[in-house]
Deep mutational scan, measured.
Amino acid sequence: HMTFVALYDYVASGETDLSFKKGERLQIVNNTEGDWALAHSLTTGRTGYIPSNYVAPSD
Protein backbone atom coordinates (compact mmCIF):
# COMPACT_ATOMS: atom_id res chain seq x y z
CA HIS A 1 0.00 0.00 0.00
CA MET A 2 1.15 3.53 -0.72
CA THR A 3 1.67 5.80 2.26
CA PHE A 4 -0.04 9.18 2.36
CA VAL A 5 0.26 12.17 4.67
CA ALA A 6 -2.67 14.27 5.87
CA LEU A 7 -2.63 17.86 4.62
CA TYR A 8 -5.35 19.06 7.02
CA ASP A 9 -7.20 17.98 10.14
CA TYR A 10 -10.40 16.04 9.45
CA VAL A 11 -13.20 15.31 11.91
CA ALA A 12 -15.32 12.28 11.03
CA SER A 13 -18.94 13.07 10.15
CA GLY A 14 -20.14 9.50 10.66
CA GLU A 15 -19.22 6.15 12.18
CA THR A 16 -17.57 4.89 8.99
CA ASP A 17 -15.34 7.97 8.61
CA LEU A 18 -11.82 8.24 9.99
CA SER A 19 -10.75 11.33 11.93
CA PHE A 20 -7.14 12.40 11.52
CA LYS A 21 -4.76 15.26 12.21
CA LYS A 22 -2.56 17.18 9.81
CA GLY A 23 0.72 15.32 9.34
CA GLU A 24 -0.76 11.92 10.22
CA ARG A 25 0.43 9.03 8.03
CA LEU A 26 -2.18 6.85 6.35
CA GLN A 27 -2.30 3.91 3.97
CA ILE A 28 -5.03 3.83 1.32
CA VAL A 29 -6.78 0.46 1.48
CA ASN A 30 -9.36 1.03 -1.25
CA ASN A 31 -9.72 4.08 -3.50
CA THR A 32 -12.73 3.14 -5.65
CA GLU A 33 -15.23 5.48 -3.98
CA GLY A 34 -14.43 8.60 -6.03
CA ASP A 35 -13.90 11.51 -3.63
CA TRP A 36 -13.60 9.12 -0.67
CA ALA A 37 -10.96 6.51 0.08
CA LEU A 38 -10.85 3.72 2.65
CA ALA A 39 -7.72 4.40 4.67
CA HIS A 40 -5.79 2.91 7.57
CA SER A 41 -4.05 5.31 9.94
CA LEU A 42 -0.49 4.28 10.75
CA THR A 43 -0.67 6.69 13.70
CA THR A 44 -3.82 5.45 15.46
CA GLY A 45 -4.26 2.02 13.88
CA ARG A 46 -7.84 2.84 12.93
CA THR A 47 -9.49 2.32 9.54
CA GLY A 48 -12.26 4.36 7.91
CA TYR A 49 -13.26 6.55 5.01
CA ILE A 50 -11.43 9.81 4.38
CA PRO A 51 -11.86 12.62 1.82
CA SER A 52 -9.15 11.78 -0.71
CA ASN A 53 -8.32 15.45 -1.37
CA TYR A 54 -7.20 15.84 2.28
CA VAL A 55 -4.13 13.63 1.77
CA ALA A 56 -1.09 13.55 -0.51
CA PRO A 57 1.42 10.78 -1.31
CA SER A 58 4.42 10.83 1.03
CA ASP A 59 7.97 9.91 0.10
Rank of each mutant, 00 (worst) to 15 (best):
M2T: 11
N31D: 11
V11Y: 10
T16S: 13
A12S: 08
G45P: 00
L7S: 05
F20I: 11
W36E: 03
E15W: 08
R46G: 08
D17C: 13
E24Q: 02
S58F: 15
T44V: 01
S19Q: 05
A37N: 07
N30D: 13
N53A: 12
L42M: 09
G14C: 15
D9S: 06
L38I: 06
L18S: 03
G34C: 08
V55E: 03
T32E: 10
R25Q: 12
S41R: 01
D35I: 12
F20T: 02
S13I: 14
A12H: 04
L42V: 07
L7E: 07
Y49F: 11
A39W: 03
N30Y: 14
D9A: 04
R46Q: 11
A37H: 10
N53P: 05
I28H: 02
H40T: 15
K21G: 06
G23N: 04
R25I: 15
G14M: 08
K22A: 11
E33P: 10
A37M: 15
L7A: 05
S41C: 03
I50Q: 00
G14L: 09
D9P: 04
K21N: 08
F20S: 00
W36T: 06
T43G: 05
L7D: 04
E33M: 14
F20Y: 03
D9F: 02
A56P: 12
A6N: 01
D35N: 11
G45N: 07
T47I: 09
I50S: 00
L7P: 05
W36Y: 08
T32K: 10
S52I: 15
G23P: 00
W36F: 08
M2S: 09
Y54I: 08
D17S: 09
H1R: 06
H1D: 10
E15G: 08
G14E: 08
E15D: 13
R46A: 09
E15R: 08
F4L: 07
K21R: 10
S19P: 05
D9Q: 04
I28Q: 01
R46N: 09
T44D: 04
L18V: 07
W36M: 08
H40Y: 14
H40D: 02
E24W: 02
V29I: 15
S52M: 15
W36P: 02
M2G: 10
I50F: 01
E15M: 10
T44L: 02
T32Q: 10
P51N: 05
F4N: 02
A37Y: 15
D9K: 01
R25C: 14
S13W: 09
L18E: 03
S19E: 06
A6P: 01
T44E: 03
S41K: 01
T32I: 15
L26C: 03
N30L: 13
S13K: 14
P51V: 01
N53I: 10
E24I: 00
N30I: 11
T44C: 03
S58Q: 13
T16A: 11
K21M: 09
A39G: 04
T16P: 05
D9V: 02
V5Q: 04
R25M: 15
V55Y: 10
H40G: 02
D17N: 09
V55C: 06
L26S: 00
T32P: 12
Y49S: 03
L26R: 00
L18D: 01
Y10F: 07
Y8W: 11
L26V: 04
T3C: 13
G34N: 08
L26M: 07
H40E: 07
L42A: 05
V5C: 06
G45H: 07
Y8N: 06
S19G: 08
N31T: 13
A39D: 01
Q27V: 15
G34M: 07
E33W: 12
D35V: 11
G23I: 03
H40W: 08
Y54C: 09
V29R: 07
D35C: 09
I28R: 01
I28V: 08
N53K: 13
N53Q: 10
S13M: 13
L42G: 02
P51G: 01
E24D: 11
S52V: 15
R46W: 07
H1F: 13
E24P: 00
Y49K: 06
I28M: 08
V11H: 10
L18Q: 03
Y54D: 02
P57G: 08
G48W: 02
A39T: 02
Y49L: 11
Y54R: 05
H40N: 06
T47Q: 07
E33A: 12
F4S: 04
L26E: 00
L42H: 05
G48T: 01
T16F: 15
G23R: 00
A56T: 14
M2D: 09
R46P: 01
H40V: 15
A56E: 11
V5P: 01
Y54V: 06
D9W: 03
L38F: 11
A37K: 13
G14I: 07
N30G: 15
L26W: 02
Y49R: 09
A39C: 04
G48K: 01
A39Q: 01
Y54K: 05
A39R: 00
N30T: 14
A37W: 15
G48N: 01
S52G: 07
E24F: 02
K21L: 09
G14A: 12
I28C: 06
L18H: 02
T32F: 15
T32A: 12
D35L: 12
G34K: 08
E33D: 13
A12P: 06
I50A: 02
V11M: 09
Y54S: 10
T43V: 10
T3I: 15
G23E: 02
A12W: 02
P51H: 05
T44H: 02
S58G: 10
V29K: 08
L18Y: 04
V29S: 08
K21D: 05
H1C: 14
S13T: 14
M2C: 10
W36N: 03
H40S: 07
Y8L: 08
T43C: 12
E33H: 13
A12I: 03
W36C: 10
V29C: 14
L38Q: 03
G14R: 14
G48Y: 04
S19W: 04
A12N: 04
A56D: 06
V55D: 04
L38D: 01
G23T: 01
Q27W: 14
I28K: 03
S41P: 00
I50C: 02
N53F: 11
V5D: 03
E15I: 10
L38Y: 13
P57N: 10
S19A: 06
T44W: 01
T3G: 06
E15C: 10
N30H: 12
D9E: 06
